[in-house]
Nucleic acid binder design. Structure first.
Length: 223
DNA sequence: GAGTCTCT
DNA sequence: CCTC
């Protein structure tokens, strides 16, 4: 293990997963299996601490529709949407307070995963926390509200499995589908940074640790 | 496929 | 990033 910095993904993978630990799904995109599982209890504890200060809420799109996914954020910036548009904000509009700090465990996980996928020196300043109840979904979209498209997106899946759609640069490109399970970390950047992606309606189920929900963490360099 | 916002 |  390297000294004085976050452990390499390979270290965390040791003896955790029998199958392939890493799938390269496209140039600049990798799916890391079992990566977050080693820290699931610690992750859930810090997520709960963030949520205590910045509760999940269902935000409104500019078109006036309420999102099925409940969201909150931590870090220097949080993603928000309302009738005025999509953007990053340094303060939680619900409380008018700064978003909770990004817990070190979360940052280190994201940085390690990015490194494993080939993106050195990822410095995320925003972590969106999305909660999917059964039926919740995320329409096909691009992440383009960030300032820096050189930085990748790192997505951590916890709880119930979901079907992820990973498309191309054009909305008309037929998306590939694959399942994102508890402990998976998906990293995409480079050529695939602005790819269209989404999540199909969550199938009901019961997860041993999280119950009837999926939590997704998405790390970005927003500012 | 378009329009819904805002704004660097 | 949602619905038409």
């Amino acid at each position: 293990m390297r000294k004085g910095s976050a452990p390499l993904a390979a270290d965390l993978f040791e003896n955790l997963f029998d199958g392939p630990r890493r799938e390269d799904i496209a140039p600049g995109a990798a799916l890391l299996h079992g990566f977050a599982r080693a820290q699931e209890l610690e992750l859930m504890a810090v997520i709960e601490a963030v949520v205590a200060r910045a509760p999940f809420r269902h935000m409104m799109t500019p078109g006036g529709h309420t999102m099925s996914v409940a969201m909150t954020s931590c870090g220097r910036a949080g993603w928000v949407t309302d009738r005025r548009g999509y953007r990053y904000a340094t303060h939680d509009p619900a409380s008018e307070l700064p978003w909770p700090e990004m817990p070190d465990v979360l940052r280190e996980l994201a940085v390690s995963a990015a490194a494993e996928a080939g993106f050195a020196a990822f410095t995320p300043d925003a972590c969106l926390i999305n909660r999917y109840a059964p039926g919740a979904k995320m329409a096909l979209h691009q992440d383009k509200d960030e300032q820096d498209f050189a930085a990748p997106i790192v997505s951590v899946s916890l709880g119930l499995p979901a079907v992820f759609q990973f498309g191309g640069m054009a909305r008309s490109d037929k998306p590939r589908r694959f399942e994102l399970r508890h402990g998976d970390v998906l990293v995409w950047g480079g050529e695939t940074r602005l790819v269209y992606h989404g999540v199909l309606a969550l199938k009901d189920g019961e997860h041993p640790l999280l119950g009837r929900q999926r939590i997704n963490l998405t790390f970005r360099k927003a500012l």
